[in-house]
């Protein structure tokens, strides 16, 4: 599983960062990006799904 952030859609709500801080980082302006290559270990799959389901900009997706 991979988590992907569409940086064009991100407006810096930081919901993903608070729900999945091991998968997502934010820059000094609060805009999000996936950590590393976005690989989601099985124990963080729920956190990844929460990040997707709480982004008001629909900027986060998961590739199974």
């Amino acid at each position: 599983m991979r988590i992907i952030v569409d940086t064009d859609k991100c407006e810096g709500h930081n919901r993903c960062y608070s729900l999945a801080p091991d998968l997502i980082d934010v820059d000094d302006y609060g805009y999000a990006s996936a950590i590393g290559d976005g690989n989601v270990p099985p124990e963080l799959a729920d956190a990844a799904r929460l990040a997707v389901d709480n982004c008001p900009e629909y900027a986060i997706s998961i590739e199974e």
Binding site: E11, H13, L50, D53, N54, C55, P56, E57, Y58
Partner: peptide, 12 residues
């Protein structure tokens, strides 16, 4: 759990 609320607005 699933809460795409827009209390803080959306967009720019």
């Amino acid at each position: 759990q699933r809460n795409r609320h827009v209390a803080f607005g959306v967009g720019i």
